[in-house]
């Protein structure tokens, strides 16, 4: 996706909002909820955040910010460092590769594309984690997470939509 020079110049403070919203989603993912099974089906909130901002305001979510946020998520979650940056950057590149087709469609189409993405994300996350631990991890575990992420997509998107109003 091309970013025009004048847009690049006006990034400044606006870029803070996507960063802060995704940071907040990371915090929400790592809180100790004390609810049975929640740890196995926690929705991938940061994926929703990166998807949303990469589609609607890609100029405010540069790749290095995704890298830092992904790394931070790994550090706070205790997952292998590099896993989340890798997966989130691949997702962002996929969106950029598709271009503005996303923006020209409606919410249902966006959601449908997101479903495809989250399935791919889940499979990749399972595959890389299995390779990392040199053990075949249970792939059923990630299914609950995928379904919850799909279910949470409208809510998180709506909340991010509210914050988007502050981004010029």
């Amino acid at each position: 996706m091309n970013i025009s020079p004048n847009k690049e110049a006006s990034i400044g403070f606006n870029a803070v909002i996507p960063f802060l919203t995704i940071l907040m989603l990371i915090f929400l993912m790592v809180l100790p909820y004390n609810i049975p099974l929640i740890s196995d089906i926690m929705p991938l909130l940061t994926l929703i955040g990166v998807y949303y901002w990469s589609v609607f305001k890609p100029e405010y979510l540069p790749i290095w910010v995704v890298f830092i946020l992904g790394g931070l998520q790994d550090i706070l979650m205790g997952s292998p460092l590099g896993l989340m940056p890798l997966l989130l950057i691949v997702v962002q590149q996929f969106i950029f590769f598709q271009g503005r087709q996303f923006l020209e469609r409606d919410f249902i189409f966006n959601w449908f594309v997101f479903v495809m993405l989250v399935i791919g994300f889940g499979i990749m996350s399972w595959g890389i984690s299995s390779l990392y631990f040199r053990a075949l991890l249970d792939y059923w575990d990630v299914l609950g997470q995928i379904l919850m992420t799909i279910a949470f997509y409208p809510v998180i998107t709506w909340l991010l939509g509210l914050t988007r109003k502050f981004v010029k």
Partner: peptide, 15 residues
Amino acid sequence: RIVSDSNSPFFKSML
């Protein structure tokens, strides 16, 4: 006090 949880099916740790 427990401050954070992995909340992941693949990693089980807490801060």
